[in-house]
């Protein structure tokens, strides 16, 4: 019985951590740049296909990270320049544009890799016994890597010179320009970094889930729920939002079933949109 509780606890933690990781990139583009990037999930998908590509070439799994960053960067840079930048002040148009982009990216990947499911082998096989619960070793690694990545980025954002300049740009764009911050370039780099982060989470998730061109849809919706609940004001909102959404879904799923867990999250998000549209941690 103890082992069962530990197993459910690990499942819930995994769900929360993965959700936070995938949402972080979306939080960057939405929270910092005001662009609701509906193609965010497609960059997770591109990351996952990077892992598949690397495996099919016979390269080691770790090579997928630079490949994913290169791919997301190479796509993200022109996308920011020609599609997103003209629409920074027009959020609704940006939503439409990124929706179109998501279709385009799916078609593109479909053209190269086909529409079918692909499998990426787990680089670390087997299970480890944690307090009486057998848990996949690779998922432990993913959890630790995700926590390390999130912590690094949050620390960097709060402490580095560039992180402070990004905060300054978001806080007061006119003043940021006046003090000499190259706002256009910084916004582009920030946007591309958010996309690369999505790609990295795709690489981490690829060995666990079905890799196919439409997989991105699975992620963008729940990430959006996280930001609805957590709010865009602070990095803390992301952590709390992931905890609430991932935790609530996993807990209700564990106690009742998946359908109830999914419905619960949907209702929770709608309640937030209705009663508390700025989320738990408002700006």
């Amino acid at each position: 019985m103890d082992g069962l509780l530990v197993a459910h606890g690990l499942n819930i933690s995994f769900e929360i951590v993965v959700l936070a990781l995938v949402s972080l990139g979306l939080a960057i583009t939405l929270g910092l740049l005001g662009v609701l990037n509906l193609a965010h999930g497609e960059f997770v998908m591109i990351g996952a296909f990077s892992a598949f590509f690397v495996q099919s070439q016979g390269w080691p799994y770790l090579a997928a990270f630079p490949v994913a960053i290169l791919a997301c960067g190479a796509i993200g840079w022109p996308v920011e320049k020609f599609l997103i930048r003209p629409l920074y002040a027009r959020p609704f148009d940006a939503i439409l544009a990124t929706w179109g982009l998501s279709l385009l990216l799916r078609e593109m990947v479909e053209f190269f890799f086909g529409r079918g499911f692909n499998s990426v082998a787990q680089p670390i096989k087997g299970t480890v016994n944690i307090l009486g619960a057998d848990y996949p070793a690779f998922q432990i690694v993913v959890m630790l890597a995700a926590i390390a990545l999130i912590a690094t980025i949050v620390f960097w954002f709060l402490r580095s010179v560039t992180g402070r300049r990004i905060q300054a740009m978001v806080d007061n764009p006119d003043l940021a320009k006046a003090v000499g911050i190259p706002v256009d370039a910084l916004a582009r780099n920030t946007f591309v970094a958010g996309l690369c982060l999505a790609g990295i989470s795709g690489v981490l998730l690829a060995p666990i889930v079905a890799v196919h061109p439409s997989m991105g849809i699975d992620y963008v919706l729940k990430s959006f729920f996280v930001l609805v609940v957590g709010g865009l004001g602070h990095i803390l909102g992301l952590v709390i939002g992931s905890g609430v959404i991932g935790g609530a879904e996993a807990t209700v799923s564990a106690i009742i079933d998946r359908t109830s867990g999914y419905s619960f999250v949907l209702i929770l998000s709608l309640l937030f949109l209705w009663r508390r549209p700025n989320g738990l941690v408002a700006r």
């Binding site: 069962l4 197993a7 459910h8 499942n11 995994f14 769900e15 057998d134 998922q139 889930v209 079905a210 997989m215 849809i217 699975d218 919706l221 729940k222 996993a250 799923s253 564990a254 079933d257 998946r258 359908t259 999914y262 419905s263």
Partner: peptide, 21 residues
């Protein structure tokens, strides 16, 4: 016996844990 919603892809770690039990 359990059912998962059709729609966005599900994760099944919790279902697998129940099955093991």
């Amino acid at each position: 016996e359990e059912y998962a919603p059709l729609g966005p892809g599900n994760k099944f770690d919790d279902a697998v844990t129940r099955i093991r039990a």
